[in-house]
Simulated assay, not measured.
Amino acid sequence: MDFTFTEDQLALRANVRSVFMKEVAPELLRELWETDTGRSAELWQLVTEQGLTALSVPEEYGGLGLADIDWVLMAQEVGYYGLTEPLIDTAWVGAALIAALPESAAAFKDVWLARIAHGEAKLAIGHPLNPLVENAHVADLLLLNHRDEVHAVPRGQVTLTAHASLDASRRLFAVEWTPSEATRLADAEVGRTLWADALNRSVLAVAAQLSGLVTRVLDLAIDYTAERKQFGKPIGSFQAVKHLLADVAVELEFAKPALLRAAVSLANGHSKTGLHVSHARLALADTATLAARHTMQVHGAMGYTWELDLQIFMKRIWALAAVWGDKAFHLQRVADHVLASDTVLDPSQTFAA
């Protein structure tokens, strides 16, 4: 069995990485923090031109019809560069939810999937696990959960109240709205499955972004330790500093397989997808918080200052570690499996699966 990515998948990631490296610089992120929306029409046009808005849209609606595994690679790049645009909620989670709607919503799917594929629509997603909705202020459409029903509500039909975030790139809003037959796309019976899939996809997206963020803060810390000198030597030559960063690198290598297994499980409808994405989320969140702590320690008191790029990505780590379920929620999902009376935990079960 081949567990490696295909040449096409790696080429797509390499292309996205080269574009983000040039266009999504920390200086731009700082500038966007100071704007009213915190978003950039130019950046949205950029991701549209790269075809990223069409990745999850089925081919019959003008998209590429790619799978969750392809998106994991993209989400890692989104995390690494701190992209602020609502790409993941729109083109991955939102597009997948709309594509899975029942036949009764066929006309809705025809319109909105085509708009998503062409970069003509931005989505925001409201779920009970997230009382505040990110990007609601720039969304053309909000996909909202009401007692497991799926509702699609234009931004003009909701009232938004802004809430501050530790991460200034995240724009969060309390959303007031009135459910109606006109906005309902799926009843609770159908919606329960759709929202379960959207939850797992969103959790996986957070885990993948955290993976990218860990790599980014490690890169920043390694560069800093090569430049900063004490006693005439780069501080990266000191064993204590090496251990701080090595601990993070080791944790990341152990967390990556959990992330990739979760992606494969989601893409193939595995019966334990919820378990796998929560495991990945727990592993990456723990790794990311360790990375934030150790890389800030390597930088010393400067690590949290505005002038250093490190603070941009540390704040994003801390913010993402609290969305789409906290640690207790994901630990409970894992515990429900581990402590079940019919669960068999041994290597033969793992490799048989």
Rank of each mutant, 00 (worst) to 15 (best):
H151E: 03
A352P: 01
E7D: 01
S341D: 15
A335Q: 09
W33S: 03
A188L: 09
A353W: 11
L43C: 02
K109T: 05
D346N: 15
L331M: 11
D187Y: 03
A41T: 06
W324D: 09
D336T: 10
L129A: 10
I125S: 02
Q157K: 07
D223Q: 15
I116S: 08
S341T: 05
A249H: 01
H299S: 05
P257M: 13
Q332Y: 11
K256N: 06
A152G: 02
A121N: 08
L339H: 12
T6D: 08
D68I: 04
L290C: 03
R192L: 09
G236Y: 09
E134W: 01
W195R: 00
R155D: 13
I317L: 13
A283K: 08
A107L: 10
L252Q: 14
W44T: 05
L260Y: 06
E134V: 09
G269M: 09
A54D: 02
A340V: 14
Q239Y: 09
L46E: 04
Q349W: 15
A321E: 04
T4V: 10
N130V: 14
A226T: 11
A136W: 00
A301Q: 14
E59Y: 15
G156S: 13
G191A: 12
L245C: 14
G303D: 14
V78A: 07
R13A: 12
G212P: 13
E189L: 10
Y80N: 04
I125T: 01
R147P: 06
H330M: 07
D336I: 01
H163R: 08
D2T: 07
T4P: 12
L284D: 00
E253W: 09
K242C: 02
T90P: 00
A182S: 07
D36Q: 00
P86I: 00
D70M: 09
A267I: 07
H330Y: 11
K315A: 04
S104C: 04
T289H: 00
A182R: 07
A255V: 06
E307K: 12
